[in-house]
Design a protein around this nucleic acid. Structure first.
Lengths: 180, 180
DNA sequence: TAATCAATCGAACGAACGTTCGAACCATGG
DNA sequence: CCATGGTTCGAACGTTCGTTCGATTGATTA
């Protein structure tokens, strides 16, 4: 709270004029964050039918938000369980919607290609891959969100032994950079 | 510190008789943890030549330790940057050794199979997949470390579109369960 | 027995934190 | 002009935290 006060130029007690408690403020930030990510994902998925491409869109969408708001995401990851009381359930509901959306993407892929893998493990592994970047991402070394999403999408979809990385004949999602 | 005092039965000041500060204690825990994981990994890798199998061993080794010490790993992940001063560099060195070992596994795989992918992205993605489990793992739902390592290894090596999950002709690492 | 020394503890210190409270400010409308 | 009410602030309160200190215990040794 004192950090926010200093960074914003508003006095400590001034903050409490707008937010009744630290927990309430964290709740508002979380709600805004997850709602924004989920809304943007839905928009981007519209009109895209190919299951692989839809998963790549999911990866880029999630990754992009995490890279743009890297420090904020770090705080949110650490403060994840700070919402002890009632409002927490609303956040949990949004997260569950997001999770189920991703499970749906996996099920679509399985149906389209006749695959059989554990959707939960796949989704949680994918979340881990992406969420962990706040501990290691460096723009100079690791490239843009598009490049990283491309590489992570390759690993997740075809694995490291596919041997197609950086070569021809590969769909990419660079056209998504011109978004609304 | 007061939590540790209560849980261990040692008085608060008694703890400071053995550990000069909270930061020092955290340093010792981190050192013990990463040294243990790295030593165990080296032992398990001995005598295994196949690059894919070596990566699967790495995944199982890391995953197993994280699941056995799940609560501890949660604390370590959150307290990751709490080591502000000098001793931090020794921990960083151990981590770097661990990281480079994993990079080596990737390079071996690339050499053996003539692949070309970004080792850093692959390793960091793999770390993310595994380290993230402390946020979602449930023994009843997600099975043993062996089962999870198998599924994560499948995803990382061949991707979700490989279609080989749960079928025949697939090497596994269940024999590793009888370890020293 | 007396002296020593490692081990353990209760009590407290100072700092940091989330939060509250009353006063001060300042633009608006009568 | 004054009164009102939204806005902002400094100062403090109570709690928690990491840490320290002096005293007490209990076994060892001269």
């Amino acid at each position: 709270m004192r950090d926010l006060s200093r960074a914003s130029g508003v006095s400590l007690s001034g903050l409490y004029y707008y937010f009744e408690s630290k927990e309430r403020l964290l709740y508002l930030i979380q709600k805004h964050t997850f709602t924004t990510i989920l809304d943007k994902l839905k928009t981007r998925l519209e009109g895209v039918a190919d299951p692989e491409q839809r998963i790549r869109i999911f990866i880029l969408n999630h990754l992009e938000y995490f890279l743009v708001n890297q420090q904020g995401m770090k705080v949110l990851s650490h403060e994840d369980e700070a919402l002890k009381n009632g409002p927490s359930s609303e956040i949990a509901a949004i997260k569950r919607t997001y999770y189920r959306t991703c499970i749906g993407l996996m099920d679509d892929l399985k149906r389209a290609q006749g695959l059989d893998f554990n959707s939960r493990t796949a989704v949680m592994s994918l979340f881990g891959m992406i969420n962990w970047i706040y501990t290691w991402y460096s723009p100079r070394v690791d490239g843009s969100a598009q490049e990283l999403a491309q590489r992570m999408g390759d690993i997740f979809l075809t694995g490291v032994t596919a041997g197609s990385s950086g070569l021809k004949h590969r769909k990419d999602i660079s056209d998504l950079s011109s978004r609304p």
